[in-house]
Amino acid sequence: MSGELVYVYGVAAAGPGLVETVPALRGVGGEGVRVVEDSGLAAVVGPVAAADFEQAPLAAHLEDLAWLEAVARAHHEVVDAVAAAGPVLPLRLATVYRDEDAVRALLADGRAVFAPRLDKLAGQVEWGVKVHLAPTTPTTPAAPPAGEPARAAGPGTAGAGRAYLRARGHERRSREGAYREAAAAVAEVRAAAAAYATEQVRHRVQQGALAGGGPENVANDAFLVPSDSCAAFLTAVRRAAESLPAVRVEITGPWAPYSFAALDDAVPAPGGGAAAGP
């Protein structure tokens, strides 16, 4: 196993602004970040330990949430700093290559995809818009008498069972109504956002630990917005949200265009590279 691999944060257009920005950055291991150029493009890279980023140790590290969070935070800090200097195509977390020659091959082989995509993203940023069901006070249906089977005979049993079934039916209808209202609200929010966006991506809604235990997430979208339209975009989405009591809208950003790099199928297999991350 060699001692170091080359971690690639993203691809950008080569230029003086990038060269001036990168030397001040520190990467996922605290290492200095540099630029590798080829074919008019630049890969923002840094050295990382093979003991952490070869396929087998990386697979183990990905089970360590604290390690993964630290790497993700450092990765995003580098990408966001580069994005402030110009358009960037962020690569997936933990994309590594054996050496700089392999990175140059990546740039040369991928130029037909990278260059037009960078042109498309110039002057634009990503905003996240999540829609959650508005918090409500749940209605707990009346339960049958404790310790008494539902089929048991006796005074009052039938009345208690009917009340329980009515409460359950009311709860189901209320939930169905809440989803119908939320679906209509999502359509309004999306329409308001799309009026100022050039592209939209609908991500999978967040569930479980990703949802943070809050109200249910019913839409999780990303919008690519020209920088000079961001104020109008935010105003439109916030106005739509204020008129929709059935949902709560969360806006995050601006971000580098992670959702719009569209590189998963376009990045050539590493020429002698080690592994691509998650």
Rank of each mutant, 00 (worst) to 15 (best):
E4N: 10
Y9P: 09
G10C: 04
A13P: 02
L18Q: 04
L18K: 02
E20Y: 04
V22K: 02
L25A: 08
L25I: 09
R26I: 06
R26V: 09
R26P: 00
V28Q: 03
V28L: 02
V28D: 00
V33I: 09
V35T: 12
V36M: 05
V36N: 06
E37D: 05
D38Q: 14
L41Q: 07
A43R: 06
A43W: 03
G46M: 01
A51D: 14
D52T: 10
Q55C: 00
Q55Y: 11
A60M: 10
E63H: 10
E63P: 00
D64I: 04
A66N: 04
E69G: 08
V71E: 08
A74D: 11
A74G: 14
H76L: 03
V78C: 11
V79S: 11
A81D: 12
V82G: 14
A83N: 14
A83S: 14
A83T: 05
A85N: 11
A85P: 00
L89A: 09
P90D: 01
P90Q: 03
L91V: 12
R92D: 15
L93M: 12
T95A: 12
R98A: 15
D99P: 12
E100I: 06
D101Y: 04
A105F: 08
L106H: 13
L107V: 08
G110E: 09
R111N: 03
A112D: 14
A112G: 07
F114A: 01
L118F: 01
L118V: 07
A122D: 11
G123K: 05
E126C: 07
V129R: 03
V131M: 04
H132P: 06
L133Y: 02
P138F: 08
A143H: 09
P144F: 03
P144I: 03
P145R: 13
P145V: 12
A146K: 12
E148R: 15
P149I: 02
A152P: 08
A152G: 06
A153R: 14
G156Q: 05
T157W: 11
A158G: 02
A158Q: 10
A160N: 05
A160H: 13
G161L: 15
R162D: 10
R162K: 13
A163N: 07
A163T: 12
H170T: 12
R172W: 09
S174W: 06
R175I: 11
G177H: 13
G177N: 08
G177D: 15
A178V: 06
A178D: 10
Y179C: 00
Y179E: 13
V186T: 07
A187Q: 11
A187C: 01
V189L: 07
R190S: 10
R190Q: 15
A191C: 01
A192H: 08
A192C: 08
A195W: 11
Y196C: 09
A197I: 07
T198V: 15
R204C: 07
V205C: 13
G208A: 09
L210Q: 13
G212R: 09
N217F: 01
N217W: 03
N217A: 01
V218E: 07
V218K: 02
V225R: 10
P226G: 09
C230E: 15
A231P: 01
A236H: 05
V237K: 06
A240T: 01
E242D: 14
L244I: 03
L244D: 06
V247L: 03
T252F: 00
G253W: 00
W255G: 06
S259P: 00
A261P: 11
A261N: 06
L263H: 03
V267R: 03
P268I: 05
A269C: 00
G273T: 02
A274K: 00
A275C: 08
G277Q: 05
